[in-house]
Design a protein around this nucleic acid. Structure first.
Lengths: 149, 149
DNA sequence: GACAATAAGTTAGACATCTAACCAATGTCA
DNA sequence: TGACATTGGTTAGATGTCTAACTTATTGTC
């Protein structure tokens, strides 16, 4: 098994998603996936957001966000309403029920970071973030590459 | 936007998957996702494999592998046949058509690594892999954690 | 002001992915 | 040997995700 950086990144991503999903289930949110978590995370921070803003924040497409918010609405955690300023926009807000989840979310978020950085010195953590940032830039801003046959 | 390690890992994972899918499409494999690539990668290495082995290698469930191999079979890249030794096992092999893809795959794999490590010194790369390995272990072998309210 | 262009959302359809349930073949053990 | 457990694989159904096409509302331009 090769253990190059991309493989490691993939496996960490999958393991982290699984861990988060398990924590959400333990908090009473069975069937909630990390993307739902992103939606709630923005609403904890901003009180309200449009579908478009939620999609951008969660880095998902608009149709996907329609599905995600639809589920959260059926679960009674958020509420959708039409914006009075722009009739095209749907405003999404937390319900009282959704607001109750804030402490559980903050706890999960804190423990996630703790787990990720466990065993790393602050200097190691800084170097890790720098290296990952560089790696991300390499994928997101593709330079014209030297083609190797 | 927070740029902690988990967030960076998620974004790198998504960017890398997108890059790989685009490269596969450019190589004439429209609609082929990285998981299909994992299937082919093992077959390039081993000539044949059971569904179970492919699922373990790609870290996907057996039902998912049924779907993935089904698609590759419809595309004419692999062939399924029953094992003569164990009637339960399906043996999956590359077709001649599938074998033709080997050079393109090796090129993509090489360029992927090049892109991931671009701008990192060998020492940086080593430190990065060590840190990521530690992080992965933290998620996959969850230690009993100190609960923080 | 009329009309094209843009923007916000949804619907439709496809697909990878999962869990649960199932079938068939093999292994185990009294 | 025969009952039971285990293993390999598929089927069924649900869901998150995408692209393409569409609807409706706003904006920009002549």
């Amino acid at each position: 098994m090769q253990r190059n950086a991309v493989m490691l990144v993939s496996r960490i991503h999958e393991a982290a998603e699984k861990w988060i999903a398990a924590e959400l289930a333990a908090a009473g949110l069975k069937g909630v996936v990390p993307s739902h978590g992103d939606v709630l995370a923005l609403l904890f921070r901003r009180k309200e957001a449009t579908m478009h803003e939620l999609a951008a924040f969660a880095r998902r497409t608009k149709p996907t966000m329609t599905v995600l918010v639809g589920k959260l609405e059926r679960m009674g955690l958020v509420r959708r309403s039409q914006s009075p300023l722009d009739a095209r926009c749907q405003i999404v807000r937390l319900t009282a029920e959704g607001e109750k989840l804030r402490p559980a979310f903050e706890s999960i978020s804190r423990r996630l970071a703790g787990r990720a950085y466990a065993g790393l010195s602050p200097a190691d953590a800084r170097r890790l973030e720098a290296a990952l940032s560089k790696m991300l830039a390499g994928f997101e801003n593709p330079k014209p590459e030297r083609t190797q046959p």
